[in-house]
Design a protein around this nucleic acid. Structure first.
Length: 873
DNA sequence: TGCATCACG
DNA sequence: ACGTACGTGATGCAA
């Protein structure tokens, strides 16, 4: 049964106005009604799933009832100052939400509601009416329920015939009789003097209607009541008439006018922002969280059942031949054992093509078929759609083959559409469009499902302008990454073990020293126990706290270094313990055959960077000497070869210069100056040669902060200076670099408008935090808006460079080993070093030319520690 | 499993 | 009066 929800706009707005505290926008416009009304609206939308809905409003004060009774509503107070404008705001918002509204000059919302109800009933709908006005109870029927606001507004109480009877022992049609007798001061319906709710109910239980009561006035107990009934009989009848909701209104409408439509973020969010309705925005997101992204327009999609074809050996060979000769597009799913990386083996392929599915099982297939199939996988001519093609490529690499002809990787597509989505497995991808999809029983079914959602992903990619990024960058890159992962990097396990033994020794000594100084043994690795020792037993001053107790991080301990000798030991212990557990033991556990194979995650970060896992080779120590030594164990696989690294110099600041076109920043890079020194000179108003190392340090911190969304707090903490001083630096900076200031302001403004930001290569990040109700979250959103285009563009450029470098490496004896965000690590045969270094620098610097030059610095060495600058000719 | 901590860019 | 730099992953503890 279709469901129609009708809301009494005026009644609910009034309720909200008096029930809620006087909320306003930043510039003082009242908004409490908006909060109350919309909160309720979202809740009923979520709970009731209306098929039709409409909000009815009163229009003008000249209602038809004035003709009937001049006193009607005469005593109703003027609409209060704070409420009146909110009707306009509310209507504006409802318009943007595509919520139908109805009003008619001379009529009240009540009457419209009655009229709509009558019509909807005739059409066999179920009707729900939301109002604060008990008059509406008269409309109750088997098809119509009333939801009366309880205290507040978002709480409602449902009335049907049964509940009405339980509460008042009245039938719905008697509501008007009740009003006729007791009146209604708010509507100025007079009723009969001396008769309140109690008396009226008693009378109606006995005599049913006003007319019944009047006819039997003599039998009524109580002289005063009897007298008043006789004296005010006409007034009682009139009151009943006034309380009767009109069902005849001179307005033609059809239920199709009230069809429920899901609201659209692009229209709704700006208007909610306009009225500072952050809580409401949060609720909206909550309400619509399931239908963001590509889902919204295809909720009702379901999958077709593609028939499964079973083939004989001859059948397979013929089929493969046909796919090959006709260049049929295949959608593939794969089951495998082990990991893609470390000798994993494919077990089954699910193939979807032209409305049919096929399953190729390793066990069952003949060698001939497997051979033909794998040849097909390596054919550029047969195009393929896959989820997680990097793993598939690795599985094929394990068999000495390569994957060719990839035209769409659904995992990468999904990541570009919404980088914050946590999962990109086939089932999750299909669920984007077919929410109820259960787990796949077999690969054929999975392939068919992927084949059917693939066009929707491609469409979404096209419409978001992400096609180039996907097809020309991410997809080709994943093949490069597969090669890099498969190759791995050589580590000297013995050397690593020796390194670890040295650390162990020191660690054991530190442990003993700490126990001695603390005068007891405890688990130093437990922040809880450590906190107890330091701050309770030893009584050191507590500075910071965490959610769970005392803070004992390095920054806190650094402050306490002089307070007690144990602190320094603990700092040393922490540092070495980290090296031992994460790096020595962690890497040893990963080393196989003298090599380590990391996995580059291509669909994890929100900015477009790669990440590295199992192990993470993007965070090998370098800043502190003790840890840096660990890099000695990374060396080339081939004897005599060398490691060659190339890193972008100041890539993020250069991108900031490009975006902002700030003259000073651009000039600094154009002249090849040391950008931190130049910044110091500008901020302190001195010449370049007057800049002291300390000034440069401060300027460097400012430059770093800029990219993150500079805050006084962050800068003061980073530099260990008072807030006042960091504030001064920032002010000075923005005075000199006003172009940077303007850019950062603009990017935030634009992000608030769009709800998203983009990188130079069009990578997209949505920033829902900008609309968060919480101010801290919102400011976080602003910093994201400032940071993501910069960090993301750097990631884009690096990815582009990797593609060009990988191509450029082909003629040489050299391989790519690692990417560490702004650095590439290669190994090269010595005879090719000069050429490769030259090519590497060239490709990286020109990967995506900006309005300021890019510079790349190369280093060479026998291991990752002993790297010396290398200058190409 | 969530938190605290710390390694990197 | 708040709580704050951006992006990651691994480890160990304590529930």
């Amino acid at each position: 049964m279709p469901r129609m929800v009708i809301l009494d706009g005026n009644s609910l707005a009034n309720r909200a106005f008096y029930a809620l505290p006087p909320l306003t926008t930043a510039d003082g416009r009242p908004t409490n009604v908006l909060h109350g009304f919309l909160t309720m609206l979202f809740r009923l939308e979520q709970e009731q799933h209306p098929d039709y809905w409409v909000v009815a409003f009163d229009k003008t004060k000249a209602t038809v009832r004035i003709e009937q009774y001049a006193g009607y509503k005469a005593q109703r107070k003027e609409t209060p100052e704070g409420l009146r404008p909110q009707f306009d705001y509310l209507k504006e918002i409802l318009t943007e939400m595509d919520v139908p509204m109805l009003e008619l000059a001379g009529y009240e919302a009540d009457d419209l509601i009655a009229a709509i109800t009558k019509q909807a009933e005739a059409q066999g709908m179920e009707i729900q009416i939301y109002t604060g006005d008990k008059d509406a109870l008269q409309l109750i029927s088997p098809r119509t329920n009333i939801f009366l606001t309880k205290k507040g507004i978002s709480e409602v109480e449902r009335y049907d015939e049964t509940t009405l009877w339980e509460r008042y022992q009245l039938r719905p049609h008697q509501i008007i009789d009740l009003k006729g007798l007791m009146g209604d001061t708010s509507d100025n319906i007079p009723g009969v003097p001396g008769i309140g709710e109690k008396t009226a109910l008693k009378l109606l239980w006995e005599f049913e209607t006003v007319e019944g009561v009047l006819a039997n006035a003599d039998k009524v107990s109580g002289k005063k009541v009897q007298g008043n009934l006789k004296e005010y009989a006409d007034q009682a009848i009139l009151s009943k008439t006034l309380a009767t909701m009109l069902t005849e209104v001179p307005l033609a409408f059809s239920s199709e006018d009230f069809v429920y439509r899901r609201s659209q973020a692009a229209k709704v969010l700006p208007v909610l922002e306009k009225y500072d309705l952050r809580n409401v925005t949060r609720l909206w997101h909550e309400r619509h969280k399931d239908d963001e992204g590509p889902l919204s327009e295809s909720q009702e999609e379901s999958l077709e059942n593609w028939p499964e074809r079973t083939l004989t050996e001859e059948g397979w060979l013929a089929q493969i031949e046909e796919w090959q000769s006709k260049n049929i597009s295949l959608t593939l799913a794969c089951r495998y054992e082990g990991t893609g990386l470390q000798g994993g083996r494919w077990l089954e392929w699910g193939v979807a093509a032209q409305g049919e599915t096929f399953t190729l099982t390793r066990e069952a297939a003949s060698e001939k078929v497997c051979e033909a199939w794998l040849k097909l996988m390596g054919s550029d001519q047969v195009t393929k759609i896959l989820a997680d093609s990097k793993t598939v490529a690795l599985l094929l690499t394990n068999e000495g083959l390569s994957l060719k002809g990839l035209t769409l990787d659904l995992s990468l597509a999904s990541y570009l559409i919404k980088s914050s989505r946590p999962k990109f497995a086939p089932l999750d991808l299909v669920k984007e469009y077919v929410p109820n999809q259960a787990a796949f029983v077999n690969v054929g079914e999975e392939a068919a499902a992927l084949a059917q959602v693939a066009p929707k992903f491609e469409e979404e990619i096209q419409s978001l302008g992400l096609a180039h990024l996907l097809h020309e960058i991410e997809e080709p890159l994943c093949m490069v990454l597969a090669q890099v992962e498969h190759h791995g990097i050589a580590v000297d396990s013995e050397q690593l073990t020796v390194f670890g033994e040295g650390i162990s020794l020191t660690l054991r000594q530190l442990e003993q020293d700490i126990y001695a100084l603390a005068e007891e043994t405890f688990n130093i690795n437990s922040p809880k126990q450590l906190g107890a020792i330091l701050f309770e037993k030893l009584g050191l001053p507590t500075a910071k706290k965490t959610k769970t107790g005392y803070s004992t991080d390095a920054e806190t301990l650094e402050e306490l270094r002089l307070a007690h000798p144990v602190v320094e030991k603990i700092l040393d212990y922490r540092q070495l313990n980290k090296l031992m557990s994460t790096y020595v033991n962690g890497l040893l556990a990963q080393a196989k055959n003298g090599k380590i194979h990391t996995t580059f995650q291509q669909t994890v970060t929100t900015t477009g960077r790669l990440s590295s896992t199992e192990p993470n080779l993007q965070n090998i120590p370098i800043r502190l000497e003790q840890g840096r030594l660990l890099r000695k164990v990374f060396h080339p696989t081939e004897p005599g070869w060398v490691l060659l690294s190339a890193d972008y110099s100041q890539i993020e600041l250069r991108i900031l210069a490009h975006y902002s076109q700030d003259p000073l920043l651009c000039e600094s890079f154009a002249l090849g100056q040391d950008v931190h020194t130049r910044t110091a000179a500008e901020v302190f108003g001195i010449s370049l040669d007057e800049v002291t190392p300390n000034m440069r340090r401060s300027a460097k911190a400012v430059n770093f902060g800029l990219v993150y969304g500079l805050t006084e707090f962050g800068l003061s903490r980073d530099l260990g200076i008072p807030r006042k001083e960091s504030k001064f630096y920032i002010e000075q900076y923005f005075k000199r670099y006003s172009g940077v200031k303007r850019y950062l302001e603009d990017v935030v403004t634009q992000a608030k408008k769009d709800g998203q930001v983009r990188t130079l290569l069009n990578r997209l990040r949505r920033i829902p935090e900008l609309l968060h109700a919480n101010r801290v979250q919102r400011q976080f959103g602003e910093r994201i808006a400032m940071n993501t285009p910069v960090q993301g563009t750097a990631a884009d450029i690096m990815k582009l460079a990797m593609l060009k470098v990988a191509e450029g490496l082909k003629p040489f004896r050299a391989t790519m080993l690692l990417q560490v965000h702004d650095e590439l690590l290669l190994q090269v045969a010595p005879e090719d070093l000069e050429s490769v270094a030259h090519m590497l620098k060239e490709k990286m610097e020109t990967a995506y030319p900006l309005s300021v030059p890019m510079t790349v610095e190369c280093k060479v060495g026998p291991n990752w520690y002993d790297m010396q600058p290398f200058h190409t000719n």
